[in-house]
């Protein structure tokens, strides 16, 4: 019973991290309908950026994180402006291959510079627990992950739903032609969306770097988590992504509790499949795209 409660709590906390991994993809996926295979590698890229700047600027992780966000926005402008915008209208497959190509390039360039070494962002919260009793433990790191992820997702939801900028983005997502007629430059809107996505992905990069650590080629492993979280929540629904993250985290941990540690990940995926079968548009998905 204690372990059940512990698994449930750990699952929710882990789910917060999953939501942070997926939220950037949710934006890109929902607004452009782009299957961004490079998402995982971009996330790890931001982890590497943070690590580099922490070393370069005397260990301040906040400063390093701020610089990383700026840099990732620049990456977003280049990526969307020079590559993806040119192929996005040509159908799903060319965009798929381009993002595959970008993913492969990023992780191999990282490997070129950093080898196959394991890295980790130094985490001052390691070993500290918020709740520490015999029957339940809430590590500070996990709670921090959930908290940051909640804040980011609520902020993003507010931006998308309530601001003029968000309305332009949603208009471009709903109907490209109508949006163009209304004077919205969809190419530029897509660039904004990608930048916003990459900026939020760096939050994921920070949390992943502090919690799990990373290799140059870890990106693909996080990509499948991100995709799972996004489709289960529903395309284009930021809050859905949060829900999706929690569901995946809880499903994995309870799967481990009921069926043993080996099938933890498998149970997570099977839960996603079952939910997708029941709700093919995702749990909170209401936005449809052609």
């Amino acid at each position: 019973m204690e372990l059940f409660v512990q698994s449930l709590v750990s699952g929710i906390l882990l789910g917060g991290l999953y939501a942070a991994i997926g939220v950037g993809l949710s934006l890109v996926f929902g607004i452009m309908g782009l299957t961004n295979i490079a998402h995982g590698s971009l996330l790890i890229l931001s982890s590497f950026f943070i690590m580099i700047f922490v070393q370069a600027f005397g260990g301040s992780i906040i400063l390093a994180f701020a610089i990383t966000i700026v840099l990732m926005i620049a990456v977003g402008v280049l990526l969307q402006g020079f590559l993806i915008n040119r192929v996005i209208s040509k159908g799903a497959e060319p965009a798929l291959l381009v993002t595959f190509g970008v993913a492969i390039i990023i992780w191999n360039i990282l490997e070129f510079f950093f080898g196959a070494n394991f890295f980790r962002l130094s985490n001052p919260l390691t070993g500290i627990n918020v709740v520490s009793t015999r029957w339940m433990i809430i590590p500070a790191t996990a709670l921090f992950n959930l908290g940051i992820s909640t804040v980011v997702i609520l902020a993003l939801h507010f931006v998308i739903q309530k601001t003029l900028f968000g309305r332009a983005i949603r208009a471009a997502a709903g109907n490209v032609n109508a949006a163009e007629l209304m004077g919205i430059n969809t190419s530029r809107t897509y660039i904004y969306a990608m930048c916003l996505a990459l900026a939020t992905s760096s939050v994921g990069g920070l949390l992943v770097g502090q919690t799990f650590g990373f290799f140059s080629f870890s990106g693909m492993g996080y990509l499948i988590i991100a995709f799972g979280v996004v489709v289960i929540g529903g395309m284009g629904s930021i809050l859905g992504t949060f829900l999706g993250g929690i569901i995946l985290g809880v499903a994995q941990l309870l799967g481990g509790y009921f069926f043993g540690p080996g099938v933890q990940t498998l149970v997570g995926y099977l839960t996603l499949l079952v939910l997708l079968t029941l709700r093919p548009q995702g749990l909170l998905g209401n936005m449809t795209r052609k």
Partner: peptide
């Protein structure tokens, strides 16, 4: 299950099947 999904959902669904 897979044929209930369409478009990008199908793409990701097949990948999740494969990972499972």
């Amino acid at each position: 299950p897979i044929f209930k999904l369409s478009g990008v959902y199908f793409t990701i669904g097949t990948w999740i099947v494969s990972e499972s």
